[in-house]
């Protein structure tokens, strides 16, 4: 990571255009002063992916839980030309609108968006779930497993993920089909930025970062998962047998419980 860069002429002179954003929130029954969680879905996913199980579960354990849809996803405003910077802007805007300092939880490429957002918002803590930080290795893995869905993205088409990449075999067919049909696409420029990989700036306020994923993830190779965890000075927390979409898979309860347990015992995150 490079040192903090305080002259941000491009951000001042060319601010990201506002866009209508979908935010789904579930409040706990009583406010126990726990930090709010902001879930950031990956490319193609919307707030619905967390609304399915995780939001309700986090709220039942006392955490105010919010999920947003990045522009161009879910019920947010369409944005076919969105860049990674616009997505980061969306996350920081929603985080700053919450009443208290938030914990950012990013999934897939949403974890990369969160990693960039940490340089523009002092999160209380961050959790990167099955993080897709891009790069050629990830691209190679995607190409091998799903050439038909990956190749169009190279020429600006939509990146299509297959059911086998996202879920374990245990997930009932009907549910898997419902989730896959709800998938959308990310902006073309943002997809390309997964390959060009803009440099990550240091996180504001040094928040604790937890990385979790699955060794059987067909999108994030084990090596990539370890590299991300090493960047934040830790090892990933692993949930074998689960697909890439840990929040939708049959055993969705295990990773969210681990995440909340970590938040409860991590002193800086409380």
């Amino acid at each position: 990571m490079s040192a903090v860069r305080i002259i941000r002429s491009r951000e001042w002179a060319r601010p990201v255009r506002p866009a209508r954003r979908e935010v789904v929130s579930v409040a706990p029954e009583s406010d126990e002063g726990r930090p709010p969680l902001l879930f950031v879905p990956g490319f193609g996913h919307g707030a619905w992916a967390f609304a399915e199980h995780w939001l309700g579960h986090a709220a039942s354990r006392g955490f105010p839980a919010h999920a947003l849809s990045l522009r161009g996803h879910g019920a947010s405003e369409p944005a076919p030309r969105a860049s990674l910077r616009a997505y980061v802007h969306d996350v920081v805007q929603v985080a700053a609108s919450l009443p208290r300092q938030a914990v950012l939880v990013g999934h897939g490429a949403g974890a990369l968006v969160v990693a960039h957002a940490l340089a523009r918002y002092p999160a209380r803590a961050a959790v990167l779930v099955a993080p897709v930080f891009g790069g050629w290795a990830t691209f190679g893995a995607a190409l091998r497993r799903n050439p038909a869905g990956t190749l169009p993205a190279v020429v600006g088409g939509r990146l299509r993920l297959r059911r086998a990449q996202l879920f374990s075999r245990e997930l009932p067919d009907a549910e898997a089909r419902r989730y896959v049909s709800a998938l959308g696409g990310a902006g073309r420029r943002a997809q390309w930025q997964l390959l060009s990989r803009p440099a990550l700036e240091p996180a504001v306020g040094d928040p604790p970062v937890l990385v979790l994923g699955s060794p059987d993830d067909r999108v994030v190779p084990a090596g990539a998962l370890n590299r991300v965890a090493r960047r934040y000075g830790s090892a990933p927390l692993l949930f074998p047998g689960m697909g890439h979409d840990l929040m939708l898979d049959v055993r969705w309860r295990e990773p969210i419980d681990a995440l909340l347990d970590w938040l409860e015992k991590e002193p800086a995150a409380r």
Binding site: P15, R17, V92, Q93, S97
Partner: peptide, 12 residues
């Protein structure tokens, strides 16, 4: 953009 705190933007 010139006026807000760099890590707590005003609503866009």
């Amino acid at each position: 953009p010139f006026t807000q705190f760099p890590d707590f933007p005003m609503p866009d």
